[in-house]
Amino acid sequence: MKIAVASGKGGTGKTFVATNLFNVLSRRGEAVTLTDCDAEAPDDLLFFRAEKVSETEVTHQVPVINKDACTWCGRCSRWCNYNAIFYVPAAKVIEVIENLCHGCGACTFACNSGAITEKPVLLGKVTKFMTDGGSKVVEARMKVNEMSPVRIIKEAIKESGEDGVVILDAPPGTSCPFIQTVDKADNVLLVTEPTPFGLSDLRQSVETLREMKKTPAVIINRSDIGDGSVAEYLAKENIPLLAEIKYDPAIARVYSEGKLVTDEIPALTSLFEDMADKIIEGYGTGSNQR
């Protein structure tokens, strides 16, 4: 079973929930994998002692144009949907703008004169680790200066396998990286906070997931601050509330030391144990349960 932990808004506690859920499941001896899909800023490993097991490079194929073979027909440039082939025939200029290229291969297919070959360009890495608790952590990490983490996320999820529970710590927002992550998930947990900003982004996430025929369950973090509008929204939309986590400076303190509340604070340990039970039993995850 794959569970994505996502949120529209950043900083609501995705990593907090994902790492602690992973920690309690791992401690129980369940087969569990934590996959850090926030490839632009992965940080799940900060919370574990883990040893590197393997590393995979993620590349895509970008075109290389042989100007001597080019007939200046312009098909490659017209077929490119991303403006990645800069083509000014009058000046005999044709150039690939590599960071606009999505590696789709349309230009190579379009070229009738064999002037285009392809070369691999590194986008990022997927690294597997084993924690000292004996569970797997998979990290997606995008290369600095790349434009899209989507391919790296896809590879990281593939490398996570199908064993037991796979927790996908999703990137923030509701754009392509989020969609790539939740698309592969059997269940989606949305972490939010009870503020107007939290509600606005929660609504966007719920609407995006509904387009994808997925029903999320929600965790409200810092549930005793802000206002009641998130709870009202959940009731109105019939979205299950999986857990509420109260604001506590002790949580921030433990977190900032790179420790896990499920190792340090008993009340939160039982909260996350309950959450894990509900998830394993398939409760509180709406129609999307297995």
Binding site: S77, Y82, N83, A84, F86, Y87, V88, A90, L100, M147
Partner: peptide
Amino acid sequence: PNKDAEEGAGPASVQLVASKE
């Protein structure tokens, strides 16, 4: 035509004005 392009509006616009020499 590149006003609302998702990506690469700059290079595409250079291509356009360059074609006008």
